[in-house]
Simulated scan of single mutants.
Amino acid sequence: MMTIEAYLDELQRQLAPLDEDEQADVLDFYLEYIEDAKLTTDAEVIAKLGTPRQLARKILADHSIKQNEINSESGRQVTPKSNISMIWVIILAILSTPVTIPISIVILLVLFAFVITAVIIIGSILATLAALIIGGIVLSAFCFYIGLGLILTHFFVGLSYMGLGLVGVGIVFILIPFIRLMAKVLFQAMGNFFRYIYTKFNDRRNRRQGVA
């Protein structure tokens, strides 16, 4: 058994990724919520809000989604890394929620199916493009090497091979930004989907628990 003060202390420890001001705002909000709801024991708090870890994961997911939206709306670049981070905290938040209603089970099944499918598709696309780049580099180097070997005996043939090698290098340099753009688009799409799933999941949970 823990006191409400101990509950909030543990919640603060679980909120370590947030800065001190953000932690203070969260703790003030939930302390006020607990007082307004007249929750007097830790059991009542846990029944309403979940364990400190469960609540912290929800808060971190909400914060990550909000930060992602702010960056997007302000024109800041939303990197694949930030989308992956957001997806991860969303998954942790959903997995930490007790599955007690059928719709939650359906959401989790859809979530896992999407994760597996997305990883396979994105991995295959990126692996294919990476293989094309590596193959292009090897082929370009080979052509350039052959051209150097022929330049003294068959000048124009050697020059042609060297030209092909340089063209290949140029194509590779064109493909690299394209791959980065594609990775950004794919991870943004994944992030948007997870954000949508989490919003629906969270709305239903809040309605069920009566939490704003």
Rank of each mutant, 00 (worst) to 15 (best):
L148S: 08
L126Q: 10
V99L: 14
Q77N: 11
L166V: 06
I70C: 10
V211K: 03
V119K: 05
F144G: 05
G136K: 02
R180G: 05
V115I: 15
R208E: 07
N83D: 05
A61H: 01
P98H: 12
L150T: 10
Q23M: 03
A37K: 12
A212V: 04
T100F: 04
G149C: 11
T97S: 07
L15F: 10
W88C: 02
V110K: 13
I121E: 11
A37T: 02
L126S: 07
Q67N: 14
R204N: 08
Q77A: 09
V45I: 06
E32C: 05
T79D: 01
L175H: 01
F29M: 06
T79A: 05
N71M: 14
N192S: 11
A61M: 10
K200I: 03
P177E: 00
A56Q: 01
I84V: 10
A183V: 14
I84E: 08
L164K: 11
I94D: 00
V185I: 10
I34P: 00
G170A: 07
Y145P: 02
F155T: 14
S72Q: 14
S74V: 12
L55S: 02
D42R: 13
M1P: 09
T51D: 06
E10P: 07
R180Y: 08
L31F: 05
N68Q: 10
M2L: 14
M1V: 15
M162W: 08
M190K: 06
R57N: 10
F193E: 03
E22R: 13
F194S: 01
K58G: 00
N192Y: 13
F187I: 02
I121N: 12
I65G: 01
I65W: 01
I4D: 06
V138Q: 04
T40Y: 11
P177A: 06
V138T: 03
T3A: 12
I151A: 08
V138N: 01
I46W: 06
E20F: 14
A16D: 14
S160G: 15
Q188S: 15
D62P: 04
L108H: 06
L139T: 05
I121W: 12
F114N: 09
D19S: 04
G135K: 06
A118I: 02
A212W: 05
S85C: 13
I87H: 02
S160T: 09
D36V: 04
Q209P: 03
S96D: 13
S124V: 03
L108E: 15
I59R: 00
D28F: 05
A118R: 07
P80H: 09
D19R: 07
Q67L: 15
K58E: 04
I105K: 14
A189G: 15
A118W: 00
F178N: 02
A43F: 08
F178D: 00
L166M: 09
K184M: 09
N192Q: 09
V78G: 06
T100G: 14
R207C: 01
S96I: 04
I91S: 11
S64P: 00
I125K: 03
L39K: 12
G191C: 02
E32A: 12
P17C: 13
L139E: 01
K200P: 01
A212I: 03
D36N: 04
Q23N: 08
E22V: 08
G50T: 08
D28T: 04
R180Q: 08
S104Q: 15
Q188V: 01
A47F: 09
